[in-house]
């Protein structure tokens, strides 16, 4: 099991729990999508798994080991984080950004070697943006930045990838590009845990969905059985229908799509 979270609870203050009794698991090759409204604790859960926040109760195991027994460096060799694409304060080159993914494999006082640079280039090739290696991270588009951050996570050579809303703020084409890469990575054996605000994406790339509301996991399972009209309508407090759409020029292929009902 790549990621195993059991009865996790977390709070910032003693009064109320942000996360309550959260349990879920991600196996090798799984793509798990965590759906839930804003402010429900999705990002907090990611931060707990990344070891940035210390949990109050429960267990998190990554690659079979409890994360509380791992150092930051050891943990970063097991799990890589792809944040939402933002800009950096200082104008780094794309290749420099990706080489930073090699950090957990370096000693405290060592610097990246040409081998690390090579691994970073391979990661850029995998996400199809090697041609951007000398561009400045601050001057490329949002979609390209997301691909750079994915490449950095790949350079980290961790088996578990955690993506925080990987398609946020991307145009339609870039959303599709990122989802395709996620698909490829899962096929190569990476385990992927992502959050999203688009239930459609769960049908497109995920084999598992977890539904979260007010710090609790309400349901977890395959997209087809979890994502239903009533589940989504309750979760987002608005009327949502799951419809089956036929692709016009391929009559045998059907995709499920979620549509909000405005009236």
């Amino acid at each position: 099991m790549s990621l195993f979270v059991q009865t996790l609870s977390f709070n910032y203050t003693k009064r109320s729990n942000i996360l309550n009794d959260v349990s879920l698991s991600v196996a090798k090759g799984d793509v798990l999508c965590l759906l839930g409204p804003n402010g429900t604790g999705k990002t907090t859960l990611l931060r707990c798994i990344l070891g940035i926040l210390k949990i109050n109760q429960g267990e998190i195991h990554i690659g079979g080991r409890a994360i509380r027994s791992l150092s930051a460096r050891e943990l970063a060799r097991e799990v890589a984080y792809v944040p939402q694409a933002t800009s950096t304060v200082f104008p780094y080159q794309v290749l420099d950004m990706v080489i930073m993914g090699r950090n957990p494999h370096l000693g405290l006082i060592s610097t990246p070697s040409s081998r690390d640079e090579e691994i970073a280039r391979e990661a850029l090739t995998k996400t199809g943006i090697l041609h951007l290696e000398n561009c400045l991270f601050s001057e490329i588009s949002g979609g390209e930045r997301q691909l750079v951050l994915i490449a950095r996570a790949l350079a980290q050579q961790a088996n578990l990838l955690i993506l925080d809303e990987p398609t946020a703020n991307l145009d339609f084409g870039n959303q599709a590009r990122v989802l395709m890469i996620i698909n490829d990575l899962a096929r190569q054996g990476y385990s992927i845990f992502m959050t999203s605000h688009f239930p459609n994406q769960a049908f497109l790339v995920c084999n598992k969905v977890a539904i979260m509301n007010e710090g609790r996991i309400l349901a977890c399972g395959s997209p087809d059985e979890i994502i239903t009209d009533s589940c989504l309508s309750d979760l987002y407090s608005s009327s949502i229908k799951v419809v089956s759409a036929r692709i016009l020029d391929k009559p045998h292929k059907e995709v499920k799509v979620c549509v909000p009902m405005l009236v």
Binding site: A72, R77, Q156
Partner: peptide
């Protein structure tokens, strides 16, 4: 000078640096 690489990684932001294994 010895910590130059760690300082470098620190500049991308606390959360990301922590996720990259920087204390």
């Amino acid at each position: 000078y010895l910590l130059r690489w760690q300082v470098n990684v620190l500049t991308v932001g606390d959360e990301e640096a922590a996720a990259l294994g920087v204390n």
